[in-house]
Amino acid sequence: MTTPLTLTPGRRPDGTAVLTAVGEIDMSNTADLADALDRIQGPLVLDLSAVEYLDSAGLSVLFRHADRIELVANPLLDPILAISGLADVTAADSGP
C-alpha cells in the first residue's frame, strides 16, 4: 500500500514559494502534484525531503517544471534524480 501524498504550500522568509511534499509520488497522485505546481507561479522550492518514493510518472511532472524549481530531496531519491537527469536541469540539494 502506498503512503498518501500530502502537499503543503508556503513561503520562505524571503518570499520564495515553497511546496512541501510528504509521502510517495506515483501515478495515483501525480495529477495532484501537477495541479499544485501549476497553481504556484514563478520560482519555487520543491521540498521532497519527506518523500520516500518517486516513480516515472512523478518525474514526468517534475520535468515539466524543471526550469523554475529548486529541489530539496531526500537522499534516498538522489539516484533517481541523477539517473533521470532531473538533478542536472534543476537546482537540487539533498535534504537532511
Score class of each variant (00 low, 15 high):
residue 72 V to Y: 03
residue 19 L to P: 13
residue 16 T to N: 05
residue 85 G to Q: 14
residue 78 D to H: 07
residue 44 L to M: 02
residue 20 T to Q: 09
residue 38 D to A: 15
residue 60 S to T: 15
residue 80 I to W: 14
residue 66 A to G: 01
residue 38 D to F: 15
residue 4 P to H: 04
residue 63 F to Y: 07
residue 12 R to N: 05
residue 57 A to C: 03
residue 87 A to F: 06
residue 64 R to M: 12
residue 27 M to C: 15
residue 81 L to N: 01
residue 75 P to E: 05
residue 3 T to F: 09
residue 55 D to Y: 00
residue 44 L to H: 02
residue 14 D to K: 15
residue 92 A to M: 15
residue 83 I to E: 13
residue 93 D to Q: 06
residue 33 L to Y: 04
residue 56 S to K: 10
residue 27 M to Q: 15
residue 25 I to F: 11
residue 28 S to N: 13
residue 26 D to G: 07
residue 73 A to R: 09
residue 9 P to L: 02
residue 49 S to C: 02
residue 16 T to F: 14
residue 94 S to E: 15
residue 32 D to F: 04
residue 65 H to Q: 14
residue 23 G to T: 08
residue 80 I to H: 09
residue 53 Y to M: 06
residue 41 Q to P: 05
residue 62 L to R: 09
residue 31 A to W: 05
residue 66 A to Y: 00
residue 46 L to E: 13
residue 36 A to C: 02
residue 11 R to G: 10
residue 50 A to Q: 07
residue 79 P to R: 08
residue 80 I to R: 10
residue 3 T to L: 11
residue 35 D to F: 12
residue 33 L to T: 01
residue 61 V to K: 03
residue 62 L to V: 05
residue 3 T to M: 06
residue 3 T to I: 07
residue 23 G to V: 12
residue 31 A to L: 14
residue 26 D to E: 11
residue 50 A to V: 12
residue 44 L to I: 01
residue 22 V to D: 10
residue 58 G to L: 11
residue 4 P to Y: 01
residue 88 D to W: 01
residue 29 N to P: 01
residue 11 R to H: 12
residue 55 D to T: 01
residue 68 R to Q: 15
residue 45 V to I: 06
residue 18 V to P: 08
residue 23 G to D: 06
residue 58 G to T: 05
residue 83 I to K: 09
residue 16 T to D: 09
residue 58 G to S: 11
residue 59 L to M: 10
residue 13 P to Q: 14
residue 55 D to V: 01
residue 39 R to A: 11
residue 59 L to W: 03
residue 61 V to Y: 03
residue 7 L to D: 04
residue 70 E to Y: 05
residue 42 G to H: 07
residue 39 R to L: 14
residue 89 V to Q: 09
residue 96 P to T: 00
residue 89 V to K: 08
residue 40 I to E: 13
residue 32 D to G: 09
residue 58 G to Q: 13
residue 24 E to N: 12
residue 83 I to G: 13
residue 32 D to I: 05
residue 76 L to S: 11
residue 74 N to H: 05
residue 35 D to V: 13
residue 16 T to W: 08
residue 2 T to S: 13
residue 19 L to Q: 04
residue 57 A to F: 08
residue 88 D to V: 01
residue 37 L to N: 05
residue 58 G to P: 08
